[in-house]
Design a protein around this nucleic acid. Structure first.
Lengths: 230, 230
DNA sequence: AAATATTTGTACGTATGTATA
DNA sequence: TTATACATACGTACAAATATT
C-alpha cells in the first residue's frame, strides 16, 4: 500500500493529466481536500507540494493552488563517467593514456581552466570498450587545487572516476555539440576524417575555482539520452 | 531569512561538498541533528530528505543516512521550444511548413509513435531565425489523442509551442546525437552535404499513450548547454 | 532463529508566520 | 483592514525496516 500522500498526489495528478482539471483551474483548497480525503492538512499539503515541485501546479498564498500551464521541456541528463558507462554495458573497460604532461598553463589552458600562471596536468587518452575505441578524451586538471593528481596512475582508475571520487565539486557546466572528426581523432577512433561525432565538454568548479576541463569526443553512433524526471 | 530546514540543508550540503564529510560516511542520526540545531525532528528530516532527493545522501532505515558516492554528473538540460529559443536570442522567428500530411500510421510511424493503425499528422518544417535557416523539424502527432491538431495552422504558432500549450504530458525522453547532413537537410540549412549537425529527438507521453515524436536537426555550430543545478 | 533496539517514514493535531485578494 | 490560504515548525505517535544481540 502506498503512503496516503502519494495516493492523493496520484489521484490529483490523474485529474490534471486526463484534462478533467484544465490549465489555470483552481484546485480545491487544502481544507477542502482534507475533508474530501479525510486526512490531515499536512498530508494533502505534502501531496500538493510534490505536484508543485514537478511543475504541475502552482501555489499562491491567499489565492490557492492552480493547475500550471505546461512548461518547457526540462530534462535531467545523466552523464556517467565513461568507465562506469562502459562497465554498465557489460563491456571490459580499458584506458590508453596517449600523453601526460605537467606544465605551466598555456594561453589556451588559461582560457579553458582560468588558472593564472599555475600548473596544470594535461592528459590525452583513449577509452576502450572490449578493446574497441570508444571515445577520445582531452583533459586539464588544475594542480593548484588538486596537487594529489600528480601522483595518480590514471591507467588504473580513469581520470573522470578518480576526480569524481576524490574531489568535491559544486558546479558543472556542459556543452554538447556535433563536430567533424579531425585526422587525429578519426585515426584513434577508426573513423573516416570528417565523420560526425558527439562532443561533450565539461567545466567543473568548486565554488569559484575551476577544477578540471574535459572534452570527450565519442565514436560515431554514440548518443546521449535524457529523461524528464518527475 | 531562509526557512530553518533550508539552512540546515545548506549547512550539511556544505560539509559534504567541502569534503569534510567524505563519501560513505554516516551522517548524524536525526535525533542528534535535532540536538545540534535545536529544532524538531520533522525539520531535520525535511532537510535530509531534500538532500536524499537530489542524490547527495542515501537513507536506510535502522542503519542511518550516508553521504552518497557520486557516480554520475547529473545536469538539467532545458530544451526550449525552438520558437522560444529564437525569440530569446532577439531574432525574428518564422516557420516554413514544407509538408503537411494526414495519414494512417506507416510502419515507420508506428515504430516512432507506437500507434496501432491510427491516424497521424506528419509535419516537415524549417525554422528560420531572422530569415536564416535554423533547424529542420520532422514531427509526428498522434491524432487519436490530439484530434484538434487537424484544425491548427502551425505557421501561426509552431507545432512545438502549440502542443506544449494544449496537450498535457507526463513523460518525455530525449536522444541527442551527431548526424551528417543528408542532401535534403544540407540544402535546407545551406550546408555542405555531410556537415555534422546536432540532432535532438524527443518522444512525449501522456501516461502510456504517445503524443508526439519530433526530430530536430540543427544548423552547424549549434550546441546544447546543461548545468548541474543544486 | 527469534527477539530487541534503533532509525527512518508517515501521519496526526496544533500554532504561528506571511503574503495577498 | 481583514480574512484567506499557503508555509513553516512544533511535538507526538506509531509503523516499517533492519542491525544487533
Amino acid at each position: 500500500m502506498k503512503p496516503l500522500n502519494e495516493r492523493i498526489r496520484l489521484d490529483i495528478e490523474g485529474r490534471i493529466m486526463s484534462g478533467a482539471w484544465e490549465a489555470g483551474r483552481r484546485i480545491p483548497a487544502e481544507h477542502e481536500l482534507m475533508a474530501e480525503y479525510g486526512c490531515s492538512r499536512m498530508t494533502v499539503s505534502k501531496a500538493i507540494s510534490a505536484l508543485a515541485a514537478r511543475g504541475l501546479v502552482e501555489r499562491r498564498k491567499r489565492a490557492g493552488s492552480f493547475v500550471a500551464a505546461p512548461r518547457v521541456h526540462r530534462a535531467t541528463l545523466e552523464i556517467p563517467d565513461i568507465s562506469a558507462e562502459i562497465e554498465g554495458l557489460g563491456q571490459a573497460y580499458r584506458l590508453n593514456i596517449l600523453e601526460r604532461a605537467e606544465r605551466v598553463a598555456s594561453a589556451e589552458d588559461r582560457d579553458l581552466l582560468a588558472v593564472a600562471g599555475g600548473a596544470v596536468l594535461a592528459l590525452d587518452c583513449l577509452h576502450l570498450a572490449d578493446g574497441s575505441p570508444f571515445a577520445v578524451e582531452a583533459r586539464l586538471i588544475n594542480l593548484a587545487i588538486v596537487p594529489e593528481a600528480r601522483e595518480v596512475d590514471f591507467s588504473v582508475e580513469s581520470p573522470g572516476r578518480w576526480l569524481l571520487g576524490h574531489v568535491p565539486w559544486t558546479d558543472a557546466r556542459h556543452r554538447i555539440s556535433a563536430v567533424a572528426a579531425c585526422g587525429r581523432v578519426a585515426g584513434l577512433l577508426g573513423l573516416a576524417v570528417g565523420t560526425p561525432c558527439l562532443c561533450v565538454e565539461r567545466w567543473t568548479w568548486r565554488t569559484a575555482e575551476r577544477i578540471t576541463y574535459v572534452r570527450q569526443t565519442h565514436a560515431a553512433g554514440h548518443a546521449l539520452t535524457a529523461r524528464f524526471v518527475a
